[in-house]
Simulated assay, not measured.
Amino acid sequence: MSLLKIARLPPLKLLNSIHDPHLLLHSNAPLTVLRRALSHNKYRRPGQPIEDKFPWENITFNFSKGLERIKKNFKLLKQEFSDRWVGPEGKSIINHMLEQNRVIWEFRGPESLQEWTVSSDEMIGGQSKVYLKLGKNDTCFLYGTLCSAPPRDGETRYSGYCAMRSKQPLASFDRKKHYDWSSFNTLHLRVRGDGRPWMISIATEAYFSHQKDDLYSYFLYTRGGPYWQDVKIPFSKFFLTNRGRIQDDQHPLWLDKVNTIGFTLGDKVDGPFQLEIDFIGVCKDFAHTEDFAYETCKRNPEV
Rank of each mutant, 00 (worst) to 15 (best):
M123G: 14
G154A: 07
D153P: 07
E122Q: 04
E111F: 11
F141S: 00
P110L: 10
Y158R: 12
G154E: 12
L132I: 04
Y161E: 05
P150V: 11
G126D: 11
A149S: 10
S119C: 15
K133F: 05
M164K: 02
F107A: 04
L142N: 01
D153K: 06
M164R: 07
P110E: 12
S128R: 03
A149F: 10
C147W: 03
G125E: 08
E122W: 06
L113A: 11
S148V: 05
Q114G: 12
S128N: 01
S119E: 11
D138W: 08
F107N: 07
S159L: 10
L146N: 04
L142F: 15
D121G: 02
F107E: 07
K136H: 01
S148F: 04
R108G: 13
R157Q: 14
N137Q: 06
F107V: 04
G125K: 08
A163E: 12
E111H: 09
V118W: 05
M123L: 14
I124A: 09
S119G: 07
V130E: 00
G135I: 02
I124M: 15
W116Q: 09
S112A: 10
E155C: 03
P151Y: 08
T117P: 06
D121M: 10
Y161T: 01
R152I: 06
L142E: 04
G135N: 00
R157G: 04
L142C: 11
L113Y: 10
I124P: 05
A163L: 14
N137V: 05
R108D: 13
R152F: 03
C147K: 03
N137I: 03
G160W: 02
R108W: 09
L146A: 09
T156G: 00
C147I: 15
N137H: 10
E155D: 12
K133M: 01
V118K: 04
S120P: 05
A163G: 06
N137T: 08
M123S: 13
W116T: 14
S119H: 08
L146Q: 01
T156V: 11
F107H: 05
Y158D: 14
P110S: 12
E111K: 08
C147T: 13
G126E: 08
K133D: 09
E155R: 03
M164E: 07
C162N: 06
T156D: 14
E111D: 13
S148N: 12
K129Q: 13
S112W: 14
T145V: 13
G144I: 06
P150M: 07
T117M: 11
M164Q: 08
P151I: 14
L142H: 03
S148A: 08
Q114C: 11
M123D: 10
